[in-house]
């Protein structure tokens, strides 16, 4: 059932999970799913095309189109309180179009994958070394992050800057601007202006 998600730019409508969380490609989060319609969504998503995490409208004001994070389920768990816990990973960012709602109140949309700077390769020296070191330190000390990223720690500059953007205590509207016009260098400069020695 895992690793069956290939592409989302087909005509199949994909379910939407509205959630105020900023997630770039390769980013991960553990969700707790308990509403019936979203349990259903997980079931639909596991058929192959994943689902889209969509930010509230007002936090997208700095980007030109409505976008979301297309995610796939990496792992399931059941919390001690019986609630389904789902670890998801962002595959890519998508433009959201043609949203409709089914009788359960679950929203579906057409998606179009668009490239983001966080998916490109940049040479090693383009990111300050301490950004990588400090990120690795934080991830190794946090139980949840350590679990989610156990096998994925990388030295890739875009990956490091993207993870920092997700973690920094900055509003979603600001974070969203790094999906709009802002490129890798601007994101890198922004993170470095906060995280330096």
């Amino acid at each position: 059932m895992k690793d069956i998600i290939k592409s989302s730019s087909k005509a199949i409508k994909i379910p939407i999970f509205p959630l105020a969380i900023f997630l770039l490609p390769e980013g991960k989060v553990r969700l707790r799913i308990f509403e019936a319609k979203y349990l259903k969504m997980i079931s639909i998503a596991s058929n192959g095309q994943g689902f889209v995490i969509k930010l509230p409208k007002d936090s997208q004001k700095n980007s030109s189109a409505t976008w979301g994070s297309l995610v796939k389920t990496e792992d399931f768990n059941q919390g001690e309180d019986g609630i389904l816990e789902v670890d998801v990973k962002c595959l890519s960012l998508v433009k959201i179009n043609d949203v409709s709602m089914n009788s359960d109140g679950l929203q579906f949309c057409n998606t179009k994958v668009f490239p983001h700077w966080s998916q490109q390769q940049y040479s090693q020296h383009q990111v300050a070394e301490h950004l990588a070191d400090m990120l690795a330190g934080i991830m190794s000390e946090d139980t949840m992050l350590k679990h989610l990223y156990s096998r994925q720690l990388t030295q890739d500059p875009a990956w490091i800057v993207a993870r920092w953007l997700e973690l920094l205590p900055v509003s979603l509207a600001i974070k969203s601007s790094f999906v709009g016009n802002q490129d890798f260098n601007q994101a890198k400069n922004f993170v470095e202006s906060i995280i330096h020695k």
Binding site: L19, I21, F22, V29, R30, L31, R32, I33, F34, I83, M134, G137, I138, E141, M144, L145, E166, L167, L168, P169
Partner: peptide, 15 residues
């Protein structure tokens, strides 16, 4: 319900 991963200003300062 999701496990909140964004740091607070206090956590960042501490880290």
């Amino acid at each position: 319900g999701f496990y909140f991963m964004e740091m607070t200003q206090e956590q960042l300062a501490e880290k």
